[in-house]
Amino acid sequence: MEDNILEIINLNKNYDKFKLCDINITLPRGYIMGFVGANGAGKTTTIKLIMNMIRRDSGKINVIGKDNIKYEIPIKNKTGYVGEQPVFYDDLTVGWTANFAGKFYSDWDGAAFNELLTRFGVDKTKKIKQLSKGMRMKTALAIALSHRPEFLILDEPTSGLDPVIRDELLDILMEFIQDERHGVFFSSHITSDIEKIADYVTLIDNGKIIFSEEKDKILNDWKLVKGDINKSDDYRDDLVGLKVSKTGFSGIVKDIDAFKACHDMSLLTIDKISLDDVLLHLAKKENQK
């Protein structure tokens, strides 16, 4: 398993009021990883560390099999990055911006860029400030894709975009991953996007990785348990992130068989889980600590 497109080993970063603690993430080539977590959980900090935009305190990051600091230039040549808010010059045109960005890459493919723009419906002669949020993201994505990267890193690419554009973006990512040497790492708090196309999901909360696993395994293993309010205390210890409302309670369990063995299930409902349920309940558990 040495052919990982991204490998993060015991990564640490301390700020005064926030710290990233022993982050470990591995993404093999050929797959998409969704990086989820609440606002302020550490998603952007992690991504900036991968891109070597901020300095790490300790740990190791390998991108495309190489140390991200030592081999920064060759790695960036092969990495497409779209930040949360693409930084462009507002008064200049899309075409100028691409021309400018292209100069930094040895494999810049202007024809591919023009093709992508046409496909995305972005007018090259427009000034950046005239573009809508969706168009801006598409421009950034077109730039990120036009130097033939192997690895795409996207920080919240879908936030603030309408469902149609989000769907188009997912399509583009799926297309990118048709080449099994490619990989995608994208953060989002729109869990439905991740639920659709991600192969792996990493959940971060308060600077710590809660899990980093195959998505199907997460969605299969965890179950949502619901029941009547006056019984909720019986289950408090065995359910994760117990939520109590006026009429009922809900919580999640990882090992439903073990749970079944020690509880009377006749009064409970077991449900398939969504990524949202996992996030809501796990985040709740963290708050209770």
């Binding site: 799926m174 192969d199 195959e214 998505k215």
Partner: peptide, 13 residues
């Protein structure tokens, strides 16, 4: 990979 794209599911699935 093609099927994953067509069905909008993950490759692992």
């Amino acid at each position: 990979r093609q099927l994953a794209q067509d069905l909008k599911t993950s490759v692992i699935t």
